[in-house]
Design a protein around this nucleic acid. Structure first.
Lengths: 122, 122
DNA sequence: GTTATTAACTTACTTTTGGTAAGTAAAGAT
DNA sequence: ATCTTTACTTACCAAAAGTAAGTTAATAAC
């Protein structure tokens, strides 16, 4: 009764849900995407300052994987000191409505969830 | 020009977006939620078999945090061997449309993203 | 001519998180 | 007396993420 409906999630590699959601399952990707949607063009250090708690290393890793997935565009100028600008790609932009609907839900349910957490830890 | 629009993300603790999205930022929560939406009621071992690659420990941790957030309900029967059933709460159910819209996006964009990844790694 | 500055990262190292495998508890069946 | 069943927990190990310092190369200041 259950086997048929659940099997499709078993294989992480070939499951689109897991394969793609694992990517937003990381700590920073959605945040970077939200910032880029809001400000449109940002340099590495601007992102770093904006998020504050992210390390440079993690920001670099996050940007690379977003670029690899074609969600953001990296534009490098041949200048010194270096200048690199990041912005959403069309694909990245098409993702944002879905993420923002999640964000909206998070905003409306934030307080109730906090209260549940507190109640649970007592 | 940037300070005003970006500041709100700086503080993880009090930012609803970060605070709540960090929770789905883990590897397993969304998967458990999707399964529970599909099958409605599942026991610990059923979830464990369905996801396969999750460890019992991680499943226990995931279920606890989902319960703490009030997204799922844990119903324990006083029997031996023990019987515990998990199902979505109303709050959890209200989340699912947003998650599923993300899942849909993932399904439609899966192949293109895979191709981008391959191209990037060459 | 040496030193400082700037921006976008790397690298080496440490800490935190996640995974594996084995163990626990308690009743009923063998 | 031992085995089975279920829902976990615990001890130990591997992988991921965080920290801090280093790299590069041109221009500017001393």
């Amino acid at each position: 009764m259950m086997e048929n409906s659940l099997k499709k999630y078993a294989d992480a590699q070939n499951c689109p849900v897991r394969n793609v959601l694992d990517r937003f399952g990381d700590k920073w990707s959605t945040l970077v995407l939200l910032l880029l949607e809001e400000v449109e063009v940002l340099r590495f250090n601007e992102l770093h300052k904006a998020i504050e708690t992210i390390s440079q290393k993690m920001l670099a890793v996050t940007l690379k994987s977003l670029e690899a997935d074609g969600l953001i565009i990296r534009k490098q100028y041949q200048e010194i000191p270096p200048r690199v600008e990041y912005m959403l790609s069309a694909r990245g932009a098409s993702l944002m409505p879905h993420i923002k609907s999640l964000v909206q839900w998070a905003n409306t349910n934030f307080e109730a969830i906090e209260q549940s957490r507190e109640a649970y830890n007592r």
